Amino acid sequence: MIGTVEKRVRIGTSGWSYPRGEGRWNGIFYPAKPKNELELYSQVFNAVEVNSTFYRLLDPQTARTWVMMTPKDFAFAIKLWQKFTHPGMFKKATGAEPEVTQADYDDFKRGINPIAEECKLACLLIQFSEWFACTPQHQGILSMLLRQFQDYPVAVELRHASWGEKASETKALLDSCGAGLAYIDMPELPGTIRQELEPQRLLYLRFHGRNREKWRTHEAAEERYDYLYSEEELKPFAEKVRGITAAGESKILIFFNNHVRGQAPANALMMARQIGLPPTATVRAEFVKAFPATKDAIKEIHIPEEKEAGQGVLFSA
């Protein structure tokens, strides 16, 4: 069973670099001044969801650098550019009109192709907002994106309740291009989708946290993701994942987006233990102190020598 889970499941976090602010990882998951966060991150997890590609096109050389600094079996889930999925946000951020051209698609593909060419692309994530309802116009937008990226593995995150209410239509649309529907755990609010975790060829789980109070009303965007899942909250998902891996051929990707103060890596490690992955990570003593529930999910606690304190050391050799 452990071998089956290890082969089919990848677990990580949404993003790996949170160096500033109240929600920073530095000094908790990383040293206070880490030299290379991605390299350190990839010593703990075998996959990451890339958030930066939502805000800007990925430079191919940056992609090549990521490939080189991560282990051979490491994989990236790449979030689609906001110009494709959130035109209002794109215009507000850039001041430019969000008219999408074929050149935009080509430029996005050019940026991620160094990752795909090295077989390190887990999938693309097409994420829509909770206000993106299942209308003929929006179905057309989704269909166009699926056709554009049909040569890549794709998962689609749909948050509006109407996509679940028209589940058969949604499934048919995704199936037509071999895409998977992302399962999301977030606060249950009026108008948000209701889902059942079911087997599919590409099963993509995103844990946003359950901070209902701050989800739609907050001063800083990170406030909505300030949430730590308990062992009991994770157990039902772990049980489902174990059952799905035992029964079928699903490829399963699990990412935690509740990133504030290192809560995402803590919950990712807790989930890995619950679904049966053997502990392999060596983490900082400060991290285990902040998240005692991770103790059984790690292999070793690293307490750096005093002389190492300023050298960006995270893990023992």
Rank of each mutant, 00 (worst) to 15 (best):
M1K: 06
G3M: 11
T13G: 05
Y18R: 00
P19Q: 10
R20H: 15
G27P: 00
K33G: 04
K33S: 12
L40E: 14
Q43A: 15
A47G: 12
E49H: 06
S52D: 06
T53D: 06
F54I: 07
L58Y: 04
T62R: 13
T65V: 14
T70L: 02
T70N: 04
I78A: 00
W81K: 00
T85A: 03
H86W: 02
M89L: 11
F90S: 02
A93M: 14
T94L: 04
E99R: 12
E99H: 12
V100G: 04
T101F: 03
A103V: 08
D104I: 04
K109G: 04
N113H: 07
P114C: 08
L125I: 15
S129I: 05
E130A: 06
W131C: 08
F132T: 01
M144A: 15
M144H: 08
Q150K: 13
Q150V: 07
H160I: 03
S162G: 15
E165N: 12
E169Q: 15
E169A: 14
S176I: 01
C177E: 13
L189Q: 13
R194V: 12
P199C: 04
R201T: 05
L203M: 09
F207T: 01
H208Q: 10
G209A: 12
N211S: 10
K214N: 14
R216Y: 15
T217S: 15
R224E: 06
D226M: 02
Y227A: 05
E233S: 10
K240Q: 14
K240C: 07
G243R: 08
I244T: 08
T245A: 15
T245G: 10
G248R: 01
E249W: 01
E249H: 04
N257C: 05
N257R: 09
G262C: 09
R273W: 11
A281Q: 06
A281G: 09
T282M: 06
K289S: 11
F291L: 01
K295A: 14
K299C: 09
E300N: 14
E300S: 12
E306A: 11
V313N: 03
L314H: 09
